[in-house]
Design a protein around this nucleic acid. Structure first.
Lengths: 197, 197
DNA sequence: CTAAAAAGTTGAACCAGATTAACTTTTTAG
DNA sequence: CTAAAAAGTTAATCTGGTTCAACTTTTTAG
């Protein structure tokens, strides 16, 4: 397991739980490396999301398409983030989201079966997934508060502050829908900002 | 442990993990019963949320207050729901939310220390908390999608459909801010609906 | 390298929902 | 039981953000 992709994931895991070398290797052995081309889908509505995906390099976007054809970005993921349709993955139901690569990417995939196997095999693995879910829970709470309490301009500026490394890697229409506004309006906000400074 | 409050929690737990009688009793022994009067706070900004709270009876509201004095409801909880400021509880940081009783209520409180102790004591307890967090994660995703993709009227109607038992127990201004609209606007929507039928 | 498609920009008209304010109804605390 | 406070209603006015449409720039696929 010397490949740099597995190195990254190892560090990610060991930051959260203390595993012995064998425990770590066993866990890593359940992940499958996949190279994903730009514009390729790793989750699609109608099919069950079979994997939880750890991004080693590249970038992804999760989005839903509603009746009138509009799409709404739900999540981005770059290096060291996880992405999937969790409703589908956890409940074994058909996905409602698309997850698509925004760049050529490398990911490590963990199937639901292997995840269940790990969770049962060792208390420490279970702890890892518990911590991941708790962090996601706290993250979504913060996000909900921002969406509910802040106007569009502030949401954009917060995103700039917090995720400067993402802003310039994703298409603007995707960012606009993530922030809950139209691409035209985001364009105006950007213009206003740059002419200000 | 024959009190009806503990009965309710027992069923809640056993639906998620299979515990022996002793395991269940040990887990329950870590919870502390508390009676909370209407308008009493169980979480307040500035203080760390020391407990995760299981609602046996009654109703609660979690909300944040922003600069201009407006308050925004983040979550409701009635019987068989959990509530706290998870950011504060998980990260041992001062809360940013209020959690207040909307009715005289009875809750079972689990401190962060006891929760950590349980998580370490037995793989099955850890599994229970992992499942809880995963469900919360999936729930928040669905909520995020609704907020991002649906107009105010639809959000209200969805809430009516999904939580008919909550609608008439919470003040309207609290529901309005939960749904991301003003109390005046919600009043109009309601009026429109009732005059329609 | 090139044509076509996709993404981003700009401005004018518009609207869902906010704001303000005056009022009515319900709840609460003595 | 009662006065005051809190919650909810209604209507007029206003605005942050959308929609539509025409245009420019960038990206993509041969």
């Amino acid at each position: 397991m010397q490949q740099p992709e597995f190195e990254l994931l190892s560090r990610h895991i060991m930051k959260r739980v203390q595993l012995t070398e064998e425990e770590l290797d066993f866990m890593l052995s359940k992940f499958k490396l996949a190279k994903i081309k730009k514009r390729q889908f790793i989750v699609q509505p109608g099919f069950t999301a079979k994997f939880r995906n750890y991004v080693c390099s590249g970038a992804f976007r999760a989005y839903v398409v509603i009746d009138n054809g509009e799409d709404h970005t739900i999540q981005f993921a770059i290096e060291d983030w996880w992405i999937t349709d969790y409703n589908s993955f956890f409940n074994n139901q058909p996905a409602t989201m698309f997850v698509v690569a925004l760049e050529d990417s490398v990911i490590l995939q963990l199937s639901r079966e292997n995840e269940d196997l790990l969770k049962q095999a060792n208390h420490k693995y279970e702890t890892f997934f518990r911590i991941s879910a708790e962090r996601a829970q706290a993250f979504h709470f913060r996000q909900l508060i921002t969406n509910l309490t802040q106007p569009a301009e502030f949401r954009y500026e917060s995103f700039l502050d917090r995720y400067p490394q993402i802003v310039n890697r994703v298409p603007q229409y995707a960012l606009a829908s993530y922030l809950g506004m139209t691409t035209e309006y985001l364009s105006k906000l950007r213009n206003k900002r740059t002419s200000k400074q």
